Simulated assay, not measured.
Amino acid sequence: MTLLTFRFAPSPNGELHLGHAYSALLNQKMAAQTGGRLLLRIEDIDVTRCTPEFEAGIFRDLEWLGLHWELPVRRQSEHFAEYREVLERLIAEELVYPAFMSRGEIRAFIAETGGRDWPRDPDGVPLYPPLDKHLPVQERKRRIADNVPFAWRLDVEAAMARVTASLSWVEFTDETMSATRAIEAQPRAWGDVIVARRDIPTSYHLAVVVDDALQGVSHVVRGQDLYSATGVQCLLQQLLGLPQPRYFHHRLILGADGRKLSKSFKDTGLASLSEAGMSPQDVRRLVGF
């Protein structure tokens, strides 16, 4: 019998807060209830913002909370060669293209053409304009040779044309895992998302589907803020022939002002709560355990 496999996958670009505590504890609880495994993954592909100090803080805070996970811990920054291999497949199959427009150029193009009516993704970010998708091959090569900065973007229409089965995912309706429903994936809502950068051969979307497959993750338990992004990941899973986990997108822990907690604002950091005299049991009660 194959064990169910869960994972908690923080990024070491800030201190863990109460929202992370809830997600980590929920993954541990669901793994324990099913007799499954709990993995810890360090998602540190952003080499400019992720630091060894923040990573050490993750281990410290999770151990303080009483979490236990299997070893070894997978660090994404140690597996760029694996992501590069997958990216090369997408390039060879002409499912991605180099996108050269800077943020300023995107804003200027939208202002000149679509203005406020320009379509936006579920996070409210304007979709990438179609200009680079139609650049001649020689022009693409010239710009790359001239070291013009670019990112690899998924050609979502070309990708959808390759889809051979219904594009959906299985979502658990609550943390008891007693009922599920099928959710229709809508990757087009995100437009041509970034799947890699020139200097980093992956993105969150690409790395997470590769890692989940390589680690045998059967159940992805994460925040509601990533619910819509699952559609993009379902598309990549089908394109790459990867197994699809089952998903549960849990409630978010909000601040007193109703805002989603954020590392950048140092919201309710676990280290600060510990220093203020709170116990792990106090934190568990705060997040509803």
Score class of each variant (00 low, 15 high):
Thr2Tyr: 03
Thr2Met: 03
Leu4Arg: 15
Phe6Leu: 12
Phe8Gln: 02
Ser11Lys: 05
Pro12Gln: 10
Asn13Pro: 05
Leu18Ile: 08
Gly19Leu: 03
Asn27Gln: 10
Asn27Pro: 14
Gln28Pro: 02
Lys29Arg: 15
Ala31Asp: 02
Gly36Cys: 10
Leu38Pro: 05
Leu39Gly: 01
Leu39Trp: 09
Leu40Gly: 11
Glu43Pro: 02
Asp44Lys: 09
Ile45His: 01
Asp46Gln: 08
Val47Trp: 11
Val47Glu: 12
Val47Tyr: 08
Pro52Thr: 06
Glu55Trp: 09
Gly57Glu: 08
Ile58Gln: 02
Phe59Ala: 06
Leu62Pro: 00
Trp64Thr: 11
Leu65Val: 10
Leu67Ile: 11
Pro72Arg: 07
Glu88Cys: 13
Ile91Met: 13
Ile91Gly: 10
Ile91Glu: 15
Glu93Val: 03
Glu94Val: 10
Val96Pro: 08
Met101Asn: 02
Ser102Phe: 11
Gly104Val: 10
Glu105Trp: 11
Ala108Asp: 15
Gly115Ala: 03
Arg116Thr: 10
Pro119Asp: 09
Asp121Tyr: 07
Val125Pro: 10
Pro126Met: 07
Pro126Glu: 05
Pro129Tyr: 04
Lys133Leu: 15
Lys133Tyr: 11
Lys133Pro: 06
Leu135His: 05
Pro136Leu: 03
Val137Pro: 01
Val137Ala: 14
Val137Thr: 13
Gln138Tyr: 05
Glu139Asn: 05
Arg140Gly: 10
Lys141Ile: 14
Ile144Asn: 06
Pro149Ala: 11
Pro149Phe: 11
Ala151Tyr: 04
Ala151Leu: 11
Ala151Gln: 10
Asp155Ala: 14
Glu157Gln: 14
Met160Leu: 15
Met160Arg: 09
Val163Arg: 02
Thr164Tyr: 03
Thr164Lys: 14
Ala165His: 15
Leu167Ala: 04
Trp169Ser: 02
Glu171Val: 04
Thr176Phe: 01
Ser178Asn: 05
Ala179Arg: 12
Glu184Tyr: 01
Glu184Asn: 04
Pro187Gln: 11
Ala189Tyr: 03
Asp192Asn: 15
Pro201His: 05
Ala207Arg: 02
Ala207Glu: 04
Asp212Cys: 07
Asp212Trp: 05
Asp212Ile: 07
Ala213Leu: 06
Gln215Arg: 06
Val217Lys: 04
Ser218Ala: 09
Val220Trp: 01
Tyr227Gln: 11
Ser228Lys: 08
Leu235Gln: 08
Leu240Ile: 09
Pro245Met: 07
Arg246Asp: 00
Arg246Ile: 00
Arg246Phe: 00
His250Glu: 01
Leu252Lys: 03
Ile253Lys: 00
Ile253Leu: 00
Leu254Cys: 04
Arg259Ala: 15
Lys260Pro: 04
Lys263Trp: 11
Ser264Gln: 15
Ala271Val: 13
Ser272Thr: 15
Glu275Val: 05
Ala276Val: 13
Ser279Phe: 05
Pro280Leu: 12
Gln281Thr: 10
Gly288Asn: 00
